[in-house]
């Protein structure tokens, strides 16, 4: 990311289990970036950290009512803002 993150922004891997954020931008590149877009992880999307695998990584996130597992290297590249009011069930 070239631009400095807005205040209150963090990366997806920092999202604690059960918390919800809103995607700001994706730092992932190439085929992986495209796949994430295709899966519906686009800027502005609500994303909730739902379950963590037994060994800590990957973590599955709820996006547009689907559950997508991402490894830490991927979630580290996704900028989010914490969304305190909104929750997706």
């Amino acid at each position: 990311m070239n631009t400095s993150p807005p205040i209150g922004a963090t990366t997806l891997d920092q999202l604690s289990l059960g918390a919800t954020g809103r995607v700001l931008a994706l730092g992932n590149q190439g085929a992986e970036r495209r796949r994430l877009f295709d899966l519906g992880i686009t800027p502005g999307t609500l994303i909730q950290s739902e379950v963590r695998s037994p060994l800590g990584d990957p973590v599955a996130y709820r996006v547009r009512n689907t559950l997508i597992a991402l490894r830490r290297e991927q979630s580290q590249m996704i900028m989010i803002t914490l969304d305190l009011e909104e929750t997706i069930v």
Partner: peptide, 9 residues
């Protein structure tokens, strides 16, 4: 490679 697997309902 990266891993983006959907966990179906």
């Amino acid at each position: 490679s990266t891993f983006s697997l959907e966990l179906p309902p």
